Simulated scan of single mutants.
Amino acid sequence: MDLFSMGTKEREKYSVEVKCSLLWESALGIAAITNHSLVETLDLSKQNRESIKKSLSKDMTEQLEYAQTHNTWKTLLQILHQEDFKNLSSFIAYVRKLSPEELKSIAIPYLGKDKNIQRNGLVQGSKEALSELQNFTKANPFLPSYLEFISKTNTEELKNHLIEVMSGWYKAVVEPEKEKLQSILSRDKNSKEKMIEKLEPEQFVEWATDGISYPPEPSVFKVILIPHYIYRPWNVQADLEGVKVFYYAVANESISIDSKYVPNKMLVQRYKALGDENRLKILKMIKEKSLSLQELTDELKMGKTTVHHHLKILKAARLVLPNSNKYSINEEALTLLPKELKLFLEN
């Protein structure tokens, strides 16, 4: 049922932009390879990881260890948001000209409008500001230590590190695969841009990221989507002032040269999930009202294990949303499905 509002205030909305470049791919590659808790889960095979390792010089290996210890991949990403750099040389020139205050101001992530005073204090070396921001970010696995590092680091040493780690990774890992990577990123960007005008911003973000639901929130007026290849299958999120950023995994069909005939994996997964009588029954039941596993089991007169299996498939296809101990239908995903199919068949 549609909701009718008597209020005059319009719902917050945001615009969407898709960007891609080999510099983003470099910075996200450094982020991926130095994230020891996730590196084994990357789509990047062990053989490819070993190949990358062998291509790195001793100095570059040390630079990556430094990046892992201090999470300087975050600084690289923060800098890349300052300009649309044309190439590695323009990035290096930009970093070299930054003053200590400018570098620290860029490196410290946006933490909300009400924390801007503390951010400015941190740039000036305030211990009180550091303590407040560390307490504010204590639930984050790396931000408290990262903020302390940025506040105390020698900025000239940091600049040299950023230039060396970015240059070293680009030359050893990206440049040998430059044409392939550029083709993959460009194909994905182009396919996404064809869909922007056909979907509402929320639907588009969910489609592009394979399921991230991002409803409008106050003071966020733009969403930037940046495709990556090396960090697949993970999506990474970041905040800028007035902007939400999703570094998202390129779609399977963007990787293939014959991508025109390769369907999006979520499209396939969703139609497979719908190709079962019992799962269609479940969807119709939970569209009428949210139901628990036990309630579905009772209604369907099936074993709990079987019903749970069907729900697992529906959840993986993002057609069902768990809500506390009950399940409800994902209306956005169902609305999107025919548009996804039409896009695949017509492009």
Rank of each mutant, 00 (worst) to 15 (best):
H309G: 08
H309W: 10
H308I: 04
L283E: 10
K287F: 12
E288R: 11
L293F: 07
L300A: 03
L311C: 10
G303T: 03
K284I: 12
K301Q: 14
D298C: 00
K284A: 14
T297M: 03
L311K: 08
I313R: 13
L296I: 08
K281E: 09
K312S: 15
A316L: 09
L280Q: 14
I282W: 01
L311Y: 10
I286C: 02
T305D: 14
S292E: 08
L300P: 09
I286Q: 01
L311H: 11
K312E: 15
I313K: 15
T306F: 00
K289R: 15
D298L: 04
L300T: 08
I286E: 02
M302N: 03
L314D: 06
D298Y: 02
L293D: 04
Q294G: 05
L280Y: 05
L293Y: 05
I313F: 07
A316C: 01
S292V: 09
K289C: 07
K281W: 05
K287R: 14
M302P: 01
T306I: 06
D298W: 00
L291E: 07
K301S: 10
G303W: 00
I286N: 02
L314T: 06
S292Y: 09
L311S: 10
G303M: 01
H309P: 00
L291S: 07
L311W: 09
T306D: 06
Q294C: 00
S292A: 05
L293T: 08
K281I: 10
T297A: 01
L314H: 05
L300S: 07
I313T: 15
L283K: 09
K315C: 00
A316V: 05
M285R: 05
L293P: 08
A316T: 13
V307G: 04
L280T: 13
E299D: 02
H308P: 03
L293S: 03
E299H: 04
E288Q: 15
K312Q: 14
K287Q: 14
E295Y: 03
H308K: 15
K301Y: 00
L314I: 05
L293Q: 09
D298V: 09
Q294E: 14
M285T: 11
S292G: 09
I313A: 13
Q294V: 11
E299M: 02
M302A: 08
K301N: 12
M302W: 00
Q294T: 13
L300V: 09
K312T: 15
K281M: 03
I282H: 01
D298F: 01
L311I: 11
T297Q: 09
S292L: 03
